[in-house]
Design a protein around this nucleic acid. Sequence first.
DNA 1: TAAGTCACG
DNA 2: GACGTACGTGACTTAT
Length: 950
Amino acid sequence: MTDAPLDAPATLSDIPREPTQDGPAVRLFLVDGSGFIFRAYHALPPLTRKSDGLPIGAISGFCNMLWKLMVDMKAQAEAPTHLAVVFDHSEQTFRNKLYEQYKAHRPPPPEDLIPQFPLMRRATRAFGVPCLELPGYEADDLIAAYACKVRDAGGEVTIISSDKDLMQLVGDRVSMLDTMKNLKIGREQVIEKFGVPPEKVVDVQALCGDSVDNVPGAPGIGVKTAALLINEYGDLDTLLARAGEIKQPKRRDTLIAFADQIRLSRELVRLDCDTPLPEPVDALVVDDPNPEELSAFLEEMEFKSLARRVGAGGAAPAQVPAAAPARPPQAAIDVNAYVCVRDMPTLDAWIVRAKAAGVVAFDTETDALSSANAALCGISLAVAPGEACYIPVGHENESNGGLEFEAPEAIEQLTVDEVVARLKPLLEDPTVLKVAQNAKYDMAVLSRHGVAVAPIEDTMLISYALEAGLHKSHGMDELSKRWLEHEPIKFSSVTGTGKSQKSFKHVPLEPATCYAAEDADVTLRLYELLRPRLAREGLLTVYETLERGMPAVLAQMENEGIKVDTDTLRKLSNDFSVRMGELEIEAHRLAGRPFNLGSPKQIGEVLFQEMGMASGKITATGAASTDASMLEDLAAQGHELPRVLLDWRQLSKLKGTYTDNLVQAIADRTGRVHTSYALASTTTGRLSSSDPNLQNIPIRTEEGRRIRKAFIAEPGHVLISADYSQIELRILAHVGDIPQLKRAFAEGHDIHAATASEMFGVPIEGMPAETRRRAKAINFGIVYGISAFGLANQLSIPQDEAGAYIKTYFERFPGIRAYMDRTKQMARTQGFVTTIFGRKVHIPAVKSKSAAERAFGDRAAINAPIQGAAADVMRRAMIRMPAALREAGLSTRMLLQVHDELVFEATEAEADATIAVVKKIMERAAEPAVSLSVPLVVEARAATNWDDAH
DNA sequence: TAAGTCACG
DNA sequence: GACGTACGTGACTTAT
């Protein structure tokens, strides 16, 4: 923890606030910035920022004190209307011209305080408070000038300081406040300290001087004597004029001898009301901090607990602390309050409101589920909680199957083109933040209408950055129920389900408006609720660098699609059918009866009951397993049928999952296959691909590769596959700090052979293939959270032998053990683990009552930082890729991502240049956030089909 | 809708 | 010390 253990208040938002600038009376708070930071510095232990050791003790205290002040201020019956923090300017001041020695003997500030000075100003601005400073003047001069100005205009001033030099300013409407001691300093307190009222403090100070500031004063005269003299003679000028009357010879002589020095001292301590004002008083009006700026700053400083407190307050209007349960956070969601926009003036009015708000949530409705073919039905906007509209553009009356004689009456709505044209400037306006739930979908749809939505935030990804692993879904319905305690209208309830389900374009405008506008409304509410948590929970950087840029990139990839060779796939499908038929006949012959080869249950009956083969392991439900490894075992025992079943299964899988369906998946619009990537479906940060899944296209078998060959480039183009070599093991070597592995990677050795060599003490040259295979299995096992059982299973060796390997591995690479132990520890104590890029992966299973589930959680915890970091690296590369290609003048398109591989389509002419750019971006993707201690290596190749590009 | 299986990293 | 057992996905088929 880097936070100051200072007492800080709970929240801002629940404290009633006076309207600012209401009436003429200005109530100004002026904070003495230097005073604040010196007190913070001395009050706190020397804290440093965890990530880089930057000293931040003073700035932490400063922030806590400032925040506490802001909260306390608002709690006052007559809350201040104006607030500023005043700083010394580091240059020489006019006092040095008067007296060279002024403040000359002051020791330099402590070394670890120096780097914190500039941060004070940033902190102040981050809290939304004006900073005041002026070259040639001290903070005290500015404080005096503002205090005089406001006081003379009939306002009130409170100076937040305990500096005695400022006490001369105290008066009827000017007081001081020592926030550390919670003391108000008024006229009485000044008299107590100086023995004179505030207006005579300067005279006393001129006499007694100040050793700290090197104000000379009169030698031998202290505060008591000075006050006595001033009270006796009325003021300094009178005293000096009548010095000869003083009875005590020493005092008399001193005052006469040092009269000039005393007058000089008075000039040095006197604060001048005529100091120019760098900002008008009006500029100091109290304002709430910009939550984003403040969050970003606090996160950068790594002030977690303050960020939490701050975020719980003003930044999140929707979040109500437990203290105020009676008041609902926002107006309840009322779907009947939404507006259906069907004319231009109304649309324009909403656009104006969105611009004024600076933030607009939006959602697109389309006539299909997958974005590849979807046409726009309408767009909804939300400009404030509860204030949302729906703009239909593509709704139609449902035809009655052509039974009517006349065409159905057209629906009165704006056209797609005019609405898009009108919304485009808003959606692309850099000063208006757009918010969407699963922005990728909306961006894909809109990009087909020539709209590049930016800047954009995604509530789904915010939830994912915050809580990956805690929930299966980060979909809007779940988020709404989870955070707003509101169940949105179900899509199926407006479209119907099953056979009678209709396209959204056929939904009547009234229910369509309720449904669509509610989505935008909910999205905006979720945004206001979740977004402040990012900074508060230290995940802003993760979100900004690993999540936020992805929707645009993926939308583009999905829209691009990839070409597949229909003929090849059809031929394959036929070929597979024929061979499956042959295998089926053979299987029935061997079984002695027909049975369904696709039914594990029937296979079990045939193999284990009728043919009497020994059943091995059982499935979760207690049935005898017939999976591939089981069938392999039986085949190895000399049985014929299992081999036939294995062959049939392979072909069945390939045909059913790939050949037939890929052809079906070709979109009419483009003639290409468009997958859909899920950004928030895995726990580790990986993507997933579906409809169709293009991340599991076969490659491991010869038959399978024939399918991969059907993924092709357009004529005159090539596909380029670029994949990270051993990225997970490289990350393991880095996080586990394994010198041998790091060296092997640095020198470009075969990592599995090097592992085997290290473990078994055999040279790499002439190493038996089996030895390397075992090391390879162990390396993979480690990444998965190894167990003797799992390794034994994988290698088909006895469990104790596998256990011995693991033991040897840990002895040779003790860093791995340490990594595993600390990772498990972290998971168990915090409930989550993190990647080197800061991504959080929650592992709730580690807290389970079941030992089995806990063990499962342990393994997931070991794997997540490795798999997750690899995913982080890939995301960074992907986000940077489009600009890098563009800047290189290349027209190359990124098409697919398969975890550690990217697939591009380039013209033949641009292939080589593309490979160079792609390799560079991918290999440097970790930088500058993380400096890996192993090189990242990318292998890239171009060919006309995907298989040959490997 | 669950279970079993298997394609991928 | 017992507990099931490599990590992360999606899609298909059968069976309920």
